[in-house]
Design a protein around this nucleic acid. Structure first.
Lengths: 113, 113
DNA sequence: CCTCGATATGTTGGCTGCCAATAGATAGCA
DNA sequence: TGCTATCTATTGGCAGCCAACATATCGAGG
């Protein structure tokens, strides 16, 4: 998978892995990697600025917790974040349907949801 | 749909619409728009440089044909282009599977290929 | 005790690749 | 005589992700 394939879909990924509970940055990277079967490997230079941005616009909240001497910042979804995640999912469906129907016009007919 | 959503998937789109026969640039834009149900609306500043690039690397060939006084450049797939299209399709599948499994881990389980 | 890899957070600079804006020409219709 | 559709093409800009870098704690093994 080429490096910056997640371009334009990063926010959705971050919101999605936080849906089931708070995680800190490093754990988010691990979660995305595992849930994608090892295909998606996000970099710190990618997610930390993104997490800050999502918090700034109110989709995420964060709390510092201490593990021994070490500090972790655990991010969690806000209500706005949950709503945004729903939007990301529906626009993802629209996106894949659009590209898919051009890429493979015959093969992507699907039963109505 | 956000403007530059096709980022990273443009080549596949162009190759795919040319699979069934040669088209000129303007017709490619129309074809993509129609096959995507009006969702994807490529700009000339997007496709003309892309078509040139694909020709330069040998995935497309082109011929000028005259319609009255007007000149059109019809692009067609080369053998390498056809092979590349197959690769684009499989990497598209990998891509959607990866993002999909993170975005919606429960809902995209599919029978083994 | 000391080193090394894993864990953990963050910043900066740069580049890729698409878009918006612009330009110009033909053709047909009202 | 315009106005819209058809048709090709270039240029500048910038969003957004990554690579590289910087820093620190922790546990395990030698």
């Amino acid at each position: 998978m080429k490096a910056d394939a997640v371009r334009g879909h990063l926010d959705g990924l971050l919101l999605a892995v936080l849906e089931q509970g708070p995680l800190h940055g490093y754990a988010i990277i691990t979660a995305v990697r595992e849930r994608s079967g090892g295909v998606l490997d996000l970099r710190t230079g990618t997610i930390y600025p993104a997490l800050n941005r999502l918090e700034r616009v109110g989709l995420l909240g964060s709390d510092w917790d201490a593990v021994g001497e070490r500090r972790r910042r655990a991010y969690h979804l806000t209500d706005a974040g949950r709503a945004s995640l729903a939007e990301e999912r529906s626009s993802w469906r629209e996106f894949t349907a659009a590209i898919g129907s051009v890429l493979d016009p015959a093969g992507h007919v699907r039963p109505a949801t």
